[in-house]
Amino acid sequence: MEFVSAHTIKLDKVENELDRFVLDFVRILERHAKYVIVSGYVAILFGRNRASEDVDAFVADFQDFPAFVAELHDQGYWILNEDSQQEAYRMLTDGLAIRIAKQGKWQPNFEIKFPKRDTDFYSLEHRVEVKLASGSVLVGSLELNIAFKLFLGSGKDIEDARFLYRLLRERLDAAKLGYFIGQLGVKKAYEEYLL
């Protein structure tokens, strides 16, 4: 793992099937929209030893949603939870997620949403590029990801937070992490599970 700059990390990892799914999909997605990946896959990307059915991402609207859907179909993907392109877009604007997987499969899938909360916008504006051998992935602020995982609070979320924190703590911005921990009201969980 090489920290190339404050916003770029290089990982010389052997890509697993989930990584390849993500890399293939973001190659399409980034042609149509600004995106950021958050939550569980971020921990998995850095080495957490678990699989995930879904990869969560925020997208800052699409330049041309019908063109995006057309390219998805051309490249062998489908939207799992909606057949109609218009309805799929309406779901997004209604604050719901659309799920995209390889045609005929439902996992792994990308769960895409439009940003709604300040934390969603923050993730989109403070992306970290993780470079792998066959491409790059843009993930949200690691400090926010850790604090937000503590906020979500399930066993799996706390484990993800602990993994990222223990792996990257020397590289994290302590002030930023402290700010998010305070804002999200997770100081007790931070002290109990991460320190």
């Binding site: 990982l11 010389d12 998995i44």
Partner: peptide, 24 residues
């Protein structure tokens, strides 16, 4: 998780990720 983090820290990306790849 702590022991896995320790393992990652002292092994190359290729080594830990091959194990992760098999599992995932």
């Amino acid at each position: 998780i702590d022991s896995w983090v320790d393992y990652i820290k002292v092994h190359s990306d290729k080594e830990w990720s091959e194990q992760q790849r098999m599992l995932i």
